[in-house]
Every structure is written in C-alpha cells, then in structure tokens.
Design a protein around this nucleic acid. Sequence first.
RNA 1: GGCGGGGUAGCCAAGUGGUAAGGCUGGGCUCUGCAAAAGCCCCAUUCGUCGGUUCGAUUCCGACCCUCGCCUCCA
Length: 471
Amino acid sequence: MLPHFHNTLTRQTEPLTLLDPEQKKLRLYTCGPTVYDHAHIGNFRAYLFEDLLQRHLESRGYDVERIMNLTDVDDKTIRGAHAKGISLDAYTRPYKDAFFADCAALRLRPAKAYPEATDPKNIERMIAMITTLVERQHAYQAEDGSVYFRITSFADYGKLAHVDLQEQRPSGRVQSDEYEKEQIADFALWKAWSPEDGDVRWESPWGAGRPGWHIECSAMATRLLGDQIDIHCGGIDNLFPHHEAEIAQCECVTGRSFVSLWMHCAHLMVDGSKMSKSAGNFYTARQLMERGWSGREIRYTLLAVHYRIPLNFTMEGLEASRQAIARIDTWRERLQEFATVDTSVRPLEKLGSIDLENFFNSLDNDLNISAALAVLFEVIRESNRQLDAGTFSADQVAGLRQWWQRVNSILALEQEPEEVIPEAVATLLAARQAARDAKNWGDSDRLRDEIASLGWQIKDTKGTQKVLRRF
RNA sequence: GGCGGGGUAGCCAAGUGGUAAGGCUGGGCUCUGCAAAAGCCCCAUUCGUCGGUUCGAUUCCGACCCUCGCCUCCA
C-alpha cells in the first residue's frame, strides 16, 4: 500500500505520487527557523512532524532529500543586531548554533543541507528570479525603490490557501501606508535599503537592498532541489501568504508546477491558548530541558498528537509522556535481558492477534501516530503477558527486538545507554547492600532516602538493587 | 465577511454505518522486610446540542451552540 497524505492544495488525502517513481527519490523542502531568537516548542512541533514524515518515508524505502532553510536576514534579525551594535552574522550565529543543538537534543534527523538566506549563492539566485519576474511583468519596482510581486498577474494566486482576493478583508495588521504598491496584497520581492538596515545590504539591478522573505525559500528550494519538488512542509501559519507567494514566484519563473504535495502542521497551544510571549506561556526547548525535561520527553509530547490537530501543550502532558516513555523503557530492558539482537532472526510479524505491520500501516495513513502508538502499547502489554507466563521463545523475543528497532528508527525514543553512576552513589549503594545482607532495614531505608536525594531512584529486585536517574 | 481546525471518559487521544483503540491519572491484585519500581486486571450503555435519513449513527445529511486559528512577512 502506498502511503497516503493530506494535501493542503486539494484538501484531500491522496496516495503519494513521486516525480521520480522508479528511484523512489523524494525531494522534500521544509521551512526552517528565522534565527532572531531561540526556536520555541511551537517551531519544534513543526520540525518534529517533518522528522516523523522523513523517518517514516525512509522506513518505507524512499530516498528522502530534505532541505531546511535558515532565514538569517529579516526585520527582526536586523533590528536585533542593531540593538546590540553587532554585525548581522555575529547576531544570528549563536541562534544558529543553538538551533542545531536543540535539534540534536530532540533527535531530529539532519537535513541534507541547511541553506542560509545570506549565502551569496542564494542571494544571486534570488536576484536572478526577481529579474525574470520583472522582465515578464510579474513584478515591478515601486516609488519606494522596492520590488513587488504583482499578484494580479498570476491567475492561480490563492489556489493553495483557497482564498479569493476579492473577498479578503484587510485585518488590523495591514499597514495602510503602503500606497506605493499597486495592490494591497502585492508582496515585496526586494526591499530597498533604508538607513535602519545599516550595512545589511546587497547590490541589485534595483539598487541596494535585501531580499523579501518569500523569495528566499523559492530561491533556495529551486536551487537545491530543482524546479519541481515532491513535498513541501511547514506550519499552518506559513500557508498564507508565505507558501502562496512561493508558488507564485516559482511558477511564474519556471512555468511548471512547483510542489506536488503540500503538508501543514497545526498550531501548538499552551494551556489552552495560543502561545505568546506577552501571555508568558512561551517555552523554548532549552528552557524545558533546564527544568529537567529530557529531549525525548519533549519529543514524545510534541509527536504523539496528529500533526493536523492543534496540540495543547501542558506540564501534565509532559508528565504523561514521561510515564509512557518509562513504560517503553522497562519493556525494552526486559526484552534485552531475555534475548540479544540477532539479525539472522526474522522480525516478528504477529504477536498474538496483533499484526505488527499495523504500526507502519497506521503511519501510511497520513501519519496516524495515535493508532501507531496504540499498536506499540498493545504489543508491550501482550509481550509482558507472555513473558510473565513464560510462553515466549528466545527467537520470538529476538524477532520482537528486530521489530522494535524498526519502530525506534521512526520514533527515536530509545533511552541513551546507562548513565555512569557517580562515585558517591555507588558507595552508598554498596553500604545499603551490606545493610540489606545484614537485614538491617533501618540503615537500608535511610540509605535509600539518601540516594534518592541525590536524584537516583532505587529499584529492589531479588537479591540486587538497580538505580535509575530521576529528575 | 471569507477560509480553516477542534468539541469522544478526570486529562490527552484514535476510530468505524452495526454497537467505543491506546496513553496518563485513579482503583484492585501480584511481587516485596517495608516502600518504591514493575507487571497484570478494572475504569465511557456513550461520542457538543437538536432534528433528519436508516433495521441500526459517535460515524451520513441539516440546523444550532461552544472553542482555537488564518486573512501580508509568527512553524
């Protein structure tokens, strides 16, 4: 069965069709962050959805060539650099580094490339595209020196967001002073330099200035992936006008259909309302990690809800994820004690009445992660039962471990190898074991509390003690 | 006004024209020196409201209510 995905363009769930079906090669473009600040968990929800998409497609044998851009020049980055009195590059560099560190902590698979808007190769491409658009009357230079896209020149404008421009009512956010434009909805391709921009400027046929946001993605996507790409993803808030503008720019330049499949991720809410700085319900991944939440706990929380459903992020949700992950961890350890990974053993296909392929089949259905996780937890319960009853063969467990490896190649939730137990904890553990051997329960309990206060939780099993790191 | 997402047990959340997955919490049991941890078991006559179609609707149709967004540079 082919994977099916919901296409924003058609508002239908469709079988995946590739430009290059023989090679199973898939070109994927994902809108990346604007590096004016640390990415927040709303951003990461989108990146995690894309990660799930990529990992699942790879598990299905597709060769996924994913590009994620970094927007490192815009109003906010220029303003930020100016406020600190440093260069644009000096301002954005730490946020780029932080972004990659956060991605690693959340176990995002790296993209093939992370093109930056300020890269001369990309600026060159943007200028070339704008030149073509101006030549073909799709764009014009206005009184203010900026170049705008003429939306009335592109009949398909609005096909992605399904909007009719005649029906649009300007919202309060629209600047009414943009009288230079022919149409209020015309968007900037090239922004003329102004004194606030300082030394952030590139020369162009229309004078000094800098690119508009939308043209960045069009230029980087087509430069690295070609005129036509298979899948383009982003947050729902990029649907309009950003992605609509990308289509207009690319299709007016190339004359070809830009993207086959558009996928958009719904918003992240915090405690029931939209995340915003002013409301104080704004989290970055690193803030959560500083509070003791692990990357995989954040990963699970953001991944476990279907991407097209608004996700309400709460501390209770994180706590629930922590418990769910602990269940997976202990199950996995139990399998590990029972059988080693043996690649000569075929992955198990059925466990009791559970078809293990249903995990992957569920993801084929527009990334139905809830159904997929339900399969995982059913497998956990059933295999625990069988392990309790002693009805499992070593081969079956080995086969189950093979299955888990496939599952984990998508979920990426497996715990890191055991943390090294600190010397102090090890000493206390030895003392407690001695006390226990002497049936000195008073000392045993006291030492247990002492170890717990260091952040390690004791698990007593027959004859031995185990400790787990607890935050 | 236009476009779009939601409303399923205490919380999160799948799902199908035929009688409700899964996770968390809670309760019970097993294990245990005690506890914790862990495992197993139990926990929605009911799917926003009201109508309609149907042998039968949470699932299809209509109306309504509530809620969250987008409509020019926020993933």
